[in-house]
């Protein structure tokens, strides 16, 4: 059977909503796109531990500390499932990590922004996890089986994180003048970067067409972004706060919120590595990996010795 036929059969499966599994035939570009996307997603979970981890030592109550630690640990768990899902496409976790450290692989740009106050923990949960969920709910139906299944688990935890984030801000919004100011300031700083998480406009997006055809994606960047704006524009009212966009208003004809233009120059600068924390985030990941090298080697050496001892016995 020629490649042409295989591709036709492959597309038929996709069209019939049959999941693609690791041992199934798939076009090389499909494998590569999934590998790139899943590993990028895994890296985002791991790098994403850093900005929130920054507040673990200073969390304002024991309950908040425990919640925050558990949340950051959940991200590590997500990273683990996603690396495992990506490995089914034929690349080792170590190789993926090396690609992250060399700068070859990307992660979500949102984590290149700093967490300056406690309110950022709420804003990240509400806005950043909220934006991520839009994408992830769609991905529970993505065509690659291991990715879709990982997403089902991850989505449950992420939606919990989003509620926790909102609740963190809700407490601040009902608190002292300083707490309310801290809440508004965090929303102001995280709103635009959160909108950028959906990626370039559809007209500028290079990977979109094939991803839609192969049902890796089911909604476009702009559709997801609009859905997010519509949701947050309503929720922010419950906080008694505002979104930092003078152009934001309900459009009765479209039945959607209109909103202002993203600063695309900033978007591309952060993607290229010029965000406020790109260097710090990558440095922290490299440092953890390098300083852990002797530990990993020791564990391996001990395991090898154990095996030899068992054989000898």
């Amino acid at each position: 059977m020629g490649t042409h036929n295989l591709e036709e059969l492959f597309q038929q499966k996709i069209d019939k909503e049959v999941k693609i599994e690791p041992k199934d035939w798939m076009p090389e570009a499909y494998r590569k796109t999934n590998l790139r996307q899943i590993s990028q997603h895994a890296h985002s979970e791991i790098v994403g531990m850093l900005p929130e981890g920054n507040w673990i030592s200073r969390a304002p109550s024991l309950k908040r500390k425990a919640i925050l630690i558990a949340k950051v640990q959940d991200e590590a768990g997500h990273g683990l499932y996603l690396y495992a899902a990506a490995e089914t496409l034929g690349q080792s976790r170590e190789q993926m990590i090396n690609d992250l450290h060399s700068g070859k692989a990307k992660y979500s740009s949102i984590f290149n922004y700093p967490t300056l106050t406690w309110a950022d923990m709420g804003a990240i949960g509400w806005l950043v996890d909220g934006a991520a969920i839009m994408n992830q709910v769609m991905l529970t139906r993505t065509s690659y089986g291991p990715y879709a299944r990982a997403m089902v688990r991850i989505c449950k935890e992420e939606s919990f994180h989003q509620r926790q984030g909102f609740e963190t801000l809700l407490v601040l919004s009902k608190g002292s003048k300083e707490q309310r100011a801290m809440c508004q300031d965090a929303i102001n700083r995280w709103w635009w970067p959160a909108l950028m998480m959906f990626g370039p406009r559809d007209s500028e997006s290079t990977n979109s067409d094939m991803s839609m055809k192969w049902k890796i994606k089911r909604k476009t960047n702009d559709e997801l972004r609009q859905q997010f704006v519509d949701m947050i524009a309503e929720q922010v009212k419950l906080l008694g706060m505002t979104l930092p966009d003078p152009a934001l208003r309900w459009n009765e004809a479209r039945k959607h919120y209109d909103f202002g233009e993203i600063n695309w120059d900033e978007f591309w600068q952060v993607v290229k590595g010029n965000g406020p924390c790109n260097k710090q985030r990558l440095d922290a990941r490299r440092k953890a990996w390098e300083e852990g090298a002797w530990v990993r080697e020791a564990a391996q050496a001990h395991a090898n010795k154990q095996r030899t001892r068992t054989k000898a016995a």
């Binding site: 791991i46 531990m49 850093l50 981890g53 673990i56 030592s57 500390k65 630690i69 950051v72 640990q73 590590a76 768990g77 990273g79 683990l80 690396y83 922290a284 440092k287 953890a288 300083e291 852990g292 090298a293 530990v295 990993r296």
Partner: peptide, 20 residues
């Protein structure tokens, strides 16, 4: 808790955080 996000390998990052 200072190890959370900085462990030598992901599985052990999770393990020490459990203990934390």
């Amino acid at each position: 808790s200072a190890w959370c996000g900085h462990g030598p390998v992901l599985e052990q990052d999770i393990a020490i955080t459990n203990i934390t």
